[in-house]
Every structure is written in C-alpha cells, then in structure tokens.
Amino acid sequence: MAKRKSLIKIKPKSFTDGEVVKVSFMVMHPMETGMRKDKKTKELIPAEYITKVVFEYNGKVITTMKVWESLSVNPVFTTYMKIDGAGVLKVIFTDSKGEVQETIEKIKPKG
C-alpha cells in the first residue's frame, strides 16, 4: 500500500532546549468504523481505523495513544513534549488492518 500522507507540526517552529512545545501529528486515513454502508452497493464498508499512535523521541517513548474508530477522518493528534536535545521525533501509527507507518521530524533546538 502506498504511503499515506502524513505530517508532524511543532509549535512554535523555533524553540530552545528544555522548552515545552506543542506537537501535532496528522495523517490521511479513512477511519472507517465498519458501521457505514456504501451508498451504491448498500454493503457495510469494512472497518479500517487507526488503533495506536506512538510518539518516540530519540528512541524513548514519550506518548502512547490507544485510538478507537470514533476519531474523525484524517485525524489530528496534538500533545506537548519537552525538548531534550537535538535528534529525531518519530511518530508510528498502526491501524486495524495491521498497517504500520512511521513519520519522522528532525528536532533542532537553537542556541
């Protein structure tokens, strides 16, 4: 399956070491509940939703989210994170069909 479009956003864009910043992860995902019917065929559309999102910063798990089908289509997940040195933020999601995908953002505190 082609890679799903995804994005990590950090606010503010420029930050210093030790600062607490807002981190958002978003991904193009249908978040099908399995309870919706196809308008043409009248068949139930199979469930396909994100079940887990893990935020990993320099190899350490910062936040784990257990996700259910009631999150919106193309979901957005926002939490905070304390900047602790330069490195890499990885966000890994898993969905109900077993798909796993990783999005990476470089972390470069200034000063």
Partner: peptide, 30 residues
C-alpha cells in the same frame, strides 16, 4: 469518551513527565 456512541471509547492517551504539560487535542465523531 462519547457517552452515546456505540463504542463510547474515543482515545486513551498515556503520558509521562517528558510531555512537560498534560494536554490532548483531537477531533471526534459524534
């Protein structure tokens, strides 16, 4: 939780002191 959704669970977020602040923002279906 969304009290009247068939599956009332929306999201469970597990945090640690490394978050610096305890916050979650997302969008749900009701």
């Amino acid at each position: 939780f969304a009290a009247k959704n068939a599956n009332s669970r929306c999201i469970d977020v597990y945090l640690s002191p490394a978050n610096g602040k305890a916050m979650l923002a997302t969008r749900i279906k009701l």
